[in-house]
C-alpha cells in the first residue's frame, strides 16, 4: 500500500492553553523527581513496537505520523494509558487513515478476538 496522502487537520484541542504550546512539548516545565522504576517489556508490547518499525519500513506510514497521532490523542491519554497502549492506538489511527483496513474490519476482528478467550494468550488465533 502506498499513502494516498490526505491531510488530516491537527486537533486544536490538544494545546495546553491558548498560547499554542502543545502538551507533549515538555522541555523546561516544572515536574517532580524522576521515577526510577522500570519494567521488562511484555510480549504484546514488543509486538506493538515491531508493528511500528515494520509499518515504517514498508512505507505504510512514518514515525512522524505516529507522533502526530500520539500528540493529537492529548494529555489525558499520556496520563491514563501506558506507553504501548498509546502506540497501538496511534499505529491503528495511521493505518485506518492510510486505508490499510477499515474500521468495520477492525471492529469486527476485535469482537471476534474477545470471544476467543479472556486472556492475551487465549485470544491468539491459534488459541
Amino acid at each position: 500500500m502506498v499513502w494516498t496522502g490526505r491531510a488530516v487537520l491537527p486537533s486544536l484541542l490538544t494545546m495546553s492553553d491558548t498560547t499554542g504550546r502543545r502538551w507533549h512539548d515538555m522541555g523546561g516545565q516544572d515536574a517532580g523527581p524522576v521515577p526510577m522504576d522500570g519494567h521488562d517489556f511484555a510480549l504484546w508490547e514488543k509486538r506493538v513496537d515491531a508493528l511500528m518499525v515494520l509499518c515504517g519500513q514498508k512505507g505504510l506510514f512514518t514515525v512522524d505520523g505516529l507522533r502526530r497521532a500520539l500528540e493529537d490523542m492529548g494529555e489525558d491519554a499520556f496520563e491514563s494509558m501506558s506507553y504501548y497502549e498509546r502506540w497501538i492506538a496511534a499505529v491503528n489511527q495511521n493505518l485506518v487513515e492510510g486505508g490499510a483496513y477499515t474500521l468495520e474490519e477492525l471492529g469486527e476482528r476485535m469482537q471476534e478476538i474477545a470471544a476467543r478467550g479472556s486472556t492475551y494468550g487465549e485470544a491468539q488465533s491459534d488459541g
Binding site: 491537527p10 494545546m15 499554542g20 504550546r21 512539548d25 522541555g27 523546561g28 512522524d64
Partner: peptide
C-alpha cells in the same frame, strides 16, 4: 512561530 499541529521545534527554544 506558533502553528498548531506536528512540529519539531521545541517551545522552550
Amino acid at each position: 512561530l506558533t502553528p498548531p499541529g506536528h512540529v519539531r521545534a521545541p517551545w522552550y527554544l
